[in-house]
Amino acid sequence: MLVEIWYFARIKEAVDCEHEKLELPDGNPTVRDLVDILSQRGENWRKALSDENLLVAVNQTVASMQTTIAEGDEIAFFPPVTGG
């Protein structure tokens, strides 16, 4: 199943990627499963996605590592927000 992934701020810089579409194995994968797949790409990916402050959103709503991902979902990884 195809999902869309966005990376923001220091996460985007660490993995040198802003946006991608990725084919995930079917079978109700969780955000944790996605992180495990992405982490295999290299040390910069593993480090950026294992940051204890890492935030994740699924379909533009804050989610957790246990959140289940479905076909067509938009997933985003980003650090704690600093606007205002």
Partner: peptide, 12 residues
């Protein structure tokens, strides 16, 4: 303002 600073996805 308090929640904009802690919830809205902006990065400086």
């Amino acid at each position: 303002m308090d929640f904009l600073k802690t919830r809205a996805p902006f990065w400086k």
